[in-house]
Design a binder for these strands. Structure first.
Lengths: 205, 205
DNA sequence: GATTTCTTTGAGTCGAGATTCAAACAATAG
DNA sequence: CTATTGTTTGAATCTCGACTCAAAGAAATC
């Protein structure tokens, strides 16, 4: 009396749909998201999209979750790939991984696009909160290690400074992806690094 | 053979429509904007909305323009109402007028909502750029006056510091209106003021 | 009051896109 | 091979909201 049926490799399909949806959102924005676009990008029919995600919101939430995780992983990686014995280099790595490098950086573009839902959707708000908290934690660690080894002389608590750095990234990043003509990526990076120099006492960041 | 016809008080009607649209956008967001909602809020028929704004985008652009102007005017007013002989008080006034005071502050909510279009619409990008530049100018003036009178000892150029302050406001504000559970308005204000204290050398802000 | 032009209405039309669904197809168990 | 359940399709249908338009209303001019 064994169970029957075709094997479920839903995991793979779902993953493909999440990826396709992420691509579609990055291209046309949340408002321009169409089931047909997702289906085309994933190479399946419209019906299949609904079969796996009867609620499109669930799919968008998965896209958001995936974007947050992969973005955090990339920053963590950047941080860890810098020499552990050089706190300034590690901080520099963080600073350089937190801003969109072009006005149409796809990763940041997707994240800002998804964050837009946060004001009206608790699920998205939670993801945004989580991203912020974990970025703050990364910076806090980097600053505390530098302070402990004497490499930095912090102008305030590591935790508060970390908050400022992440908020600065978000503010500058928002203007960059929004095509603020007066704030090019280079200029934003300079300003961010200058701020980091000021609060750590390192003039060589 | 004089011209005839009913007088045109299009100005008033347009203003009413802009106001109604602003209200609708603040309530349901750009994605949820419906002609019917605008018409209802303005107390006219759907046809009238199209009569004055055949291109809905033009109406949204007007809403954005109005929001930017009134927001800037309110900050300018806050700045000027503080005693001119007290640079610290003036800076404090600016700092307190730049963050949403609640998680659903309607003014900031509307502005962030409209800024969302900037990435895909040059008109909106221009408005956002203009808002940023003028906020930076306000802060720059406040900082320079304080520095000139010896009230502040600036940690960097007034212009650079002003950029940081505005970007910080934008970053914190974004998280507040997005319901970041870990960053309440009070906390954000504390962090912003702490930053201002650090870069001006005033411990009494 | 007649005329002209501006304004307003709302029912009707139209279209884009979401949703449904019955039939076809696939893999596994027995 | 057959039965059973999982999967996929895409044409038909449904829904919502933008857009059209002919007719009615209103102010200014003559």
């Amino acid at each position: 009396m064994g169970k029957a049926g075709r094997p479920r490799n839903q995991t793979a399909r779902r993953q493909a749909l999440v990826s396709a949806a992420g691509q579609a959102i990055a291209e046309r924005g949340l408002e321009g998201l169409r089931i047909k676009d997702i289906a085309d990008a994933a190479g399946v029919s419209q019906g299949s999209v609904l079969y796996y995600y009867p609620e499109l919101d669930d799919l968008v939430l998965e896209v958001h979750r995936g974007a947050v995780e992969s973005y955090l992983a990339s920053r963590q990686r950047a941080y860890e790939e810098a020499p552990a014995e050089d706190p300034a280099a590690r901080l520099r790595a963080l600073l350089h991984s937190g801003l969109p490098s072009m006005t149409d950086d796809p990763v940041h573009g997707l994240l800002y696009e998804l964050h837009r839902r946060a004001g009206r959707s608790p699920g998205h708000a939670e993801l945004m909160t989580s991203l912020f908290a974990r970025e703050v934690a990364l910076y806090t660690t980097a600053l505390e290690v530098g302070a402990a080894t004497g490499a930095f002389s912090l102008a305030a608590s590591a935790h508060d400074l970390a908050h400022s750095l992440v908020a600065l990234e978000d503010g500058y990043g928002l203007h960059i992806v929004s095509h603020n003509a007066a704030l090019r990526p280079d200029r934003a990076r300079e300003l961010l690094v200058a701020h980091a120099r000021a609060v750590t006492g390192r003039t060589d960041l």
